[in-house]
Design a protein around this nucleic acid. Structure first.
Length: 205
DNA sequence: TGCCAGGCCCTCTTTAGGGCCTT
């Protein structure tokens, strides 16, 4: 069970929901997997330049004191752009993380070439019986081992990785195949739920 | 300090509205 090429699974903690309203990243966490195995990790806090709200301190556990000594987002995002290289990218509710990745990289005139896949959109199709498709709920639904604190970037990216690998395994089993292409996952994301079974028939390998 | 967005999906739909998910 694997993707042929390495993939970076990432998660941002931010000051809010929208970079268009002045929100910015305060932490990036990421895991690189290759052939179903974790081969690298990245985790950095970044100082947004102003105090974050009490709500975000409570929600993430990241405090203003922790951010006071953190490097600037510019410094961290240069390092992260180097880390992701040309790899494809995965996030849970990827539209959210993609908006912040695009916004933070635009500030430093960097870009990336990989394509995004959304673990939440895939989960809605593969695990249609799950009670909901929040990251924590999927971890419980799949009985995945979890010892840590949700809403921290590296931990959430580690848990997204476990969900992602469980989904790849499920796709392989339904297709009677040993590997899954990133292109198939992207097609799956755009497939209506009722057509998923037909897409994943062994003949469509 | 508290607020904001946006893409997807479903249905009581498509000339729309609201829930899900992310911080």
């Amino acid at each position: 069970m694997s993707l042929a090429n390495s993939v970076v699974i990432l998660d941002f903690e931010t000051t809010g929901l929208s970079p268009n309203w002045g929100d910015c990243a305060i932490e990036i966490g990421a895991v690189r997997i290759q052939e179903g195995e974790v081969v690298d990790r990245f985790q950095k806090l970044m100082n947004p330049g102003w105090p974050i709200s009490g709500f975000i301190e409570d929600y993430t556990g990241i405090t203003n004191a922790m951010l006071a000594d953190a490097p600037s987002s510019s410094e961290v995002m240069h390092q992260f752009a180097d880390f992701i290289g040309d790899d494809n990218l995965v996030a849970h509710n990827a539209s959210f993380d993609k908006r912040f990745l695009d916004a933070e990289l635009e500030k430093i005139s960097r870009t990336y070439t990989g394509k995004f896949a959304c673990s939440m959109m895939v989960a809605r199709r593969i695990f249609q019986d799950a009670p909901n498709h929040k990251l924590g709920s999927l971890v419980d639904y799949l009985h995945l081992q979890s010892e840590g604190t949700f809403h921290r970037a590296l931990y959430d990216s580690e848990m997204t990785t476990k969900v992602w690998l469980a989904m790849l395994n499920e796709i392989c089993e339904r297709q009677c195949s040993r590997t899954v292409s990133f292109e198939l996952v992207q097609r799956l994301m755009k497939t209506p739920k009722k057509s998923v079974q037909r897409l994943l028939q062994p003949a469509n390998r």
